Amino acid sequence: MMISDKNQSSTAIFILLGFSEYPEFQTLLFLLFLVIYVVSVMGNLGMIAIIAVNPKLHTPMYFFLKHLSIVDFCYSTVVTPKLLENIVAEDRTMSISTCLTQFFFFATCAFTDTFMLAVMAYDRFVAICNPLLYMVIMSQKCCSLLMAAAYSWGVLFSLLFTFSLLTLSFCGTNIINNFVCDYSGILYNACSDKHFSELILFIFANFNMFSTLIVIISSYIFIFVTVMKMARHKAFSTCASHLTAVGVFYGTVLFLYCIPNTQSSWFTIKVGSVFYTVIIPMLNPLIYSLRNNEVKETIKKLMGKNDFSPN
């Protein structure tokens, strides 16, 4: 029986419908997503380069921002090229191994992103609530360990979810009414018992979401209390970019959690998925550059071909 299930799964194929139900908009959608992807790649690689070339930006906050840009670059690269291919290609089929591989990297980036946003909130908490000990607490070793933990968190959770999908069997042709091989879409098509995989999704997705949210909310409660006591409202402005990024990311994900999995909701789910997989990786470098004077000054100096050596 197990051999039969494996044989069925090995011959199973997946079809990503994407936005194929709107053939009249295919050219417009291709151009739109291509522009978004180019802006995302340039923005994130640009942010990495800006932080690398300016010694003044070699601080814990920008160290974390650089790694957030690396993850966002990978995030959009895992999803968007396949989305563009499916818009122009008539054959939207992919093997189960290809689908699960895309899911693994997609999930790794998503889980790493949530952990990094929590780490960046903790960094702002230490900077504002313990400024005299900031460089001691957030030492280079500590920052490296936190980033190693973020990447490990993403990989381990992604492996767990991927393994739970590998325990399932799939039969024949499977339709995913989305543009990416997401967990729910793959799980929906399984022709074996889904109880274990559904349990994994419920427990660990909620654990990841709420544990990182608790860190973020707790950090900002302490920050808010400290700022109010010290009457240093300008200190809170250093958190504005991060709060914006957190609000956009978690707002979109929580919104998708609240949508019931009905046929009428698939369009809303796809639009929401576009937002947090394609648009947010483009928005993050814009948010941090437009609201950050040090980054803007670095960009101006780069354009003016000035050096960054200290005076």
Rank of each mutant, 00 (worst) to 15 (best):
E90N: 15
L283V: 03
N189G: 00
I217E: 02
V274T: 15
H242G: 08
I259G: 04
S158Q: 00
H67V: 07
V88C: 11
M47Q: 14
V227K: 08
L168M: 10
V215R: 02
E297L: 14
S97L: 01
C239T: 11
I96W: 00
S197N: 04
Q8A: 11
F103L: 01
L68K: 08
M209C: 05
V295H: 02
Q102W: 01
I287F: 11
I96Q: 06
M42K: 15
M42P: 09
P55C: 06
T11D: 13
L166Y: 14
S40F: 04
G172M: 04
H58E: 14
P55Y: 09
Q8L: 14
C143G: 04
N86R: 12
L213A: 07
C181N: 03
A231V: 14
T101N: 14
G43K: 09
H195Y: 05
V136R: 10
I3Q: 14
T98N: 11
V278S: 11
C191W: 02
P60E: 15
I216E: 03
L29F: 14
P285D: 06
N7M: 13
G272T: 03
G272A: 03
L83S: 02
H58S: 15
A49Q: 15
S184I: 12
V39R: 06
S219I: 01
K194T: 11
F19E: 10
Y220V: 00
S4P: 10
I13V: 12
T167L: 13
E297F: 12
E85Q: 15
M47C: 15
L83D: 07
F115K: 01
T77V: 02
L283S: 05
K66A: 15
T112P: 11
G185W: 01
T268H: 03
I200M: 07
N174C: 10
P23W: 03
D91R: 09
T27D: 04
L133I: 01
L145W: 09
V126L: 00
I186H: 04
N261S: 07
N311V: 13
Y122N: 02
F236A: 00
M228I: 14
D5V: 06
S10M: 12
S69K: 01
V180H: 02
K6S: 13
F106G: 08
L84A: 12
K6V: 11
N293W: 10
A121M: 02
V79G: 13
F19P: 05
G272S: 03
Y75S: 10
S197Y: 04
C109M: 02
C129E: 05
E24I: 07
E24M: 06
I217F: 03
Q26P: 05
S158R: 00
T108C: 15
Q8V: 04
K66R: 15
V79S: 13
E294H: 10
S218L: 10
L159T: 04
A205D: 06
S184G: 12
K234W: 12
S40I: 06
C181H: 01
M282I: 01
E294W: 07
S76W: 01
S164C: 00
V39I: 15
L168G: 02
I137H: 02
L145E: 06
I280R: 00
T226M: 02
A148I: 08
A245D: 05
Y250F: 11
S237Y: 09
T162A: 08
T93M: 06
L243R: 00
F30P: 09
